[in-house]
Design a binder for these strands. Sequence first.
DNA 1: TTTAGCACTCGAGGAGCGTGAGTGCTAAAT
DNA 2: ATTTAGCACTCACGCTCCTCGAGTGCTAAA
Lengths: 349, 349
Amino acid sequence: MNTIDKKDKRRTQVLSHIVKLYVSQASPVSSKSISISMGDSVSSATVRNVMAELEELGFIEQPHTSAGRIPTDLGYRYYVDNIIDKLMMEKSEMERLSRVYKKRTSSINDIIEKTSSLISETLHNAGIVMCPSIEDMHLSHLELIKIKDETVLAVLVTMTNIVKNYIVILEKDVKETDLARTANFLNSELRNSTISSVYDRIKIFENENVDGELAGVISLANRIIGEIADKDVDYDVRWEGLNYFMEEPEFDDAGITKRMFEVFSDKRILAGLMKKDLVDNGLKIYIGRENEPDALRGCSFITSGYGANGKTVGRIGVLGPMRMDYNVALSTLGCLSNLISKKIEEFYE
Amino acid sequence: MNTIDKKDKRRTQVLSHIVKLYVSQASPVSSKSISISMGDSVSSATVRNVMAELEELGFIEQPHTSAGRIPTDLGYRYYVDNIIDKLMMEKSEMERLSRVYKKRTSSINDIIEKTSSLISETLHNAGIVMCPSIEDMHLSHLELIKIKDETVLAVLVTMTNIVKNYIVILEKDVKETDLARTANFLNSELRNSTISSVYDRIKIFENENVDGELAGVISLANRIIGEIADKDVDYDVRWEGLNYFMEEPEFDDAGITKRMFEVFSDKRILAGLMKKDLVDNGLKIYIGRENEPDALRGCSFITSGYGANGKTVGRIGVLGPMRMDYNVALSTLGCLSNLISKKIEEFYE
DNA sequence: TTTAGCACTCGAGGAGCGTGAGTGCTAAAT
DNA sequence: ATTTAGCACTCACGCTCCTCGAGTGCTAAA
């Protein structure tokens, strides 16, 4: 091994110790404590030299002279990208998690909601989940119920047993028989399709200029599906366990806590963050200033996509201080999103 | 006017000024500022004498010697009970609020959810609303949809257009025709009844020991309504605008903020607080230590019930620092709960 | 290249002090 | 009998000053 390599290896080693120690103790790490945690294989003086190099490289910084060092965003990033012992997870832990998903559940959304508390309890940080948009799901059934003269209730069921209700107010009264016919027509069209493809097909029917009875059915179908496609493009985002990571010393400052709070009060912000990476199925990590909302600049945000048949339909994630156990967080999220994906596939069987 | 009365009147007057000044300036109120705000009709020295009496009575206190006075829980309570200019509300404000409720909406829950943000924006505090439990609502329609072999989706619609879905997993496969028959039977039974009264009636049918076709229908109906009655006793509680009152100086302390947060993280706590007064339709006020959860001992919590036909089915409320404009809060909540009640009645027309 | 040794830095925390807002009391005024 | 002016007193707040010690960077020896 040549000298450059050796130097490099020790740098990595020291950075790794800094990150790990800082994650657990939450206060700047001194050369001495690193030396000890490395089993006194090197003296604190040597560590200090290495630390000076790491600081030069921008991986660590001193909050003030005569304090120890803490990792910078870049340091965490390097740690996550190059150092971390990739995705090692205890078998027992993995089994504990999968057991939760074993239970038979009525709807996929139940399982996803439960995931949010599972994340926050396991990782002691805020768990954030995004349920799939109805847009992305495959449909199974539509029921039309006349409530009042012009008021129709449409009940849409997806293959994953997500049930959505839409109250559609029509321009004029509609006969029960017409409604039933429309429902029959739509049910024959929509099984295993997405809402938008159904919508497209209706448009084609419409252009074919049929008339008589079918024309009425098509126009009513168009009206109802149009309403549904219009209304429900939003993703449902939920979070839990914000209290966990408010307990961290980073949040002793009331100002930070408040700004944090604003982010969580506005679901659109979180939804935006999740949606941004929706195309991607893999793990995404945002560390410190890599986050877009200012209030999250001191945080790390990790998300992972789930889906089925090669299509990602939602994401789950965890938000916490930069000082976070990335190893556990990454492996847990990976495991959970896999479990959800499998669960979705079960519904299609 | 005898002397006692006169003394009493001035005490009341001074307390009123203390509360009002403290609400607006958020720092202890001095004798001088009271004297000024009373138009120099009395000197600060006299005010000091009155303040000493009020302190003796437990209505105000000093955070420390040489500071002004702030109202105690008892002081606020006296203010609210005896001093406040009852429920005066600007006409324009009243119209602004009622305009929101004018719009035609599909379901009563929409309007109640909107109320939560309306409260928080109007009062600059946290708005909390509790939607009615399905238990308390009158039913209008039930639809049964077979999703899979043993999986049935029950869609329940109330008179107020609240739609609830229940996925019921049966022990054995059920025929579509039986399902349709059961739905017909139930629909004839449930219109304008509550879920529990329907359940009771089914029990009576069951005891009458009918047999043949009807027996199957009854048993299936029993199973489904039982499931619904079982599952959905929870009240749906929502809040909004916590950020507003976190901006108050009272919450500069991170510890308080965190404990506050825990209360809001656990909907059961809020639901419990709301439910406690559910029987009552009127306004309820909890000031400071009158609140049960420890974390709310520094807050005031005001709620008001809504309902129709003499029955209260839900509550709306506002939570903020004790230093709150009680006058505006009380009148706004009163007005809003009236508007909701009226809206519910509209659905029954 | 590593390490022991040492001077140096600087934040945290405590003591001391002046300032001023606001009080409580007393004695005079109404 | 009340009200008020006057005055001494109190105490939080903000300021500076000081000590302490953890942790560093540098130098020179191993």
